[in-house]
Design a protein around this nucleic acid. Structure first.
Lengths: 133, 133
DNA sequence: TTCTTAAATTAGCCTTGACTAACATTTACC
DNA sequence: GGTAAATGTTAGTCAAGGCTAATTTAAGAA
C-alpha cells in the first residue's frame, strides 16, 4: 500500500495529471507536449519527471515518452477525477467553462477530503433535481 | 489608485489578513501572535512585514506592533470578506466549520473573480430559498 | 537599578520550482 | 547516409518563503 502516505506537491500533481491526459489523448506523453500544455520550459519538465521517477510513479527511457507505473496511473486517475468533479461543480454554479477549468486546476490540489465529498454530494443532488441539462 | 494593480502572493495575503484580524481582536498585531496564529517562526513574520512595508500596506516602528495603512486596511478587508464568503459557502454545502475555515483559507487566494461572484450569488439564493437557518 | 526573560531583528542557510545557456540525441528530409 | 531541425538533458542561476542561530531591545522581578 504505497499510495496512502504519498502526498505530492501541487506542481508534481500537475505534471502527473498531464502525463495521464496526454497519454489518453495522444497515446504518448512527450516532454515537449507536457511543457507546452503546462506553459513551462522543457528543463522544468525534465526535472519534474526525475522526481516522479524517484517516487516510482512514472518510468522513462532517456529521450523517450513518459510512462505511468501502476501506482502512478492510479494516482493520476484520482487527481483527474477530482479535477473533473470540480470543473462540473463550478459550471453548475454558472461559471464559464474556461474559468471553471482554470479554477478547478487550482482547487484540486488544496481541498480537504471532506469538502470534496460534500461537493460530490451537491453535484449529485443537483443532477437528480434536474437542472436544464 | 495604487490598489488595482496590486497582486500579493498567497503568503503575503495571509500575513496581511492576520494583521487585520489580530488588530480587530486584540487591538494590536504583535509579531509573536502573528507567528503563532500562522504557525510560522518569528523571523518569517519579520521578513513578510518588511515586504508589506515596502508595498506600503503596513507601517511599523521597530519593536512595536504592526499597523495597517489606508490601502492595507482596504485590501485586508477585501481578503477577509472573501474568506468569510467562502467559509459560509462551504458550510452551506455541509462542510464542518473547522474544515470550512481551513479550506476557505486556501481557496481565498486562488479563485478567479468570476467564480467568487458566482459563489456570492449562490450563497444569496440559498439564503432566500430559506434553508433551516 | 540591575538582571533575567521575552520579544523582535538580523544574518545566513535550505528547498522548491521555475529559468537560460549549452550540450546531446533523435528524426526527418534531401 | 549525412545534415538540419526538433527534441531531450545537464549545469548552473534566481526568487520566494520557510528555517536556525545569534544579536538587540524591551519589560518585569528582585
Amino acid at each position: 500500500m504505497p499510495l496512502a502516505p504519498l502526498k505530492l506537491s501541487q506542481s508534481l500533481e500537475d505534471y502527473l495529471e498531464m502525463v495521464y491526459m496526454l497519454r489518453k489523448e495522444n497515446g504518448i506523453a512527450r516532454v515537449k507536449d507536457i511543457s507546452t500544455a503546462l506553459a513551462v520550459k522543457m528543463p522544468s519538465v525534465a526535472k519534474a519527471v526525475l522526481e516522479l521517477k524517484k517516487l516510482g510513479l512514472v518510468t522513462q527511457e532517456p529521450y523517450a515518452g513518459v510512462e505511468l507505473s501502476k501506482d502512478g496511473e492510479k494516482l493520476a486517475h484520482q487527481i483527474l477525477n477530482r479535477h473533473l468533479l470540480l470543473k462540473l461543480f463550478l459550471m453548475k454554479l454558472g461559471v464559464s467553462e474556461a474559468t471553471a477549468n482554470k479554477d478547478a486546476c487550482s482547487m484540486e490540489h488544496i481541498l480537504s477530503a471532506e469538502t470534496l465529498s460534500k461537493i460530490g454530494i451537491f453535484v449529485n443532488e443537483f443532477r437528480k433535481k434536474g437542472s436544464s441539462k
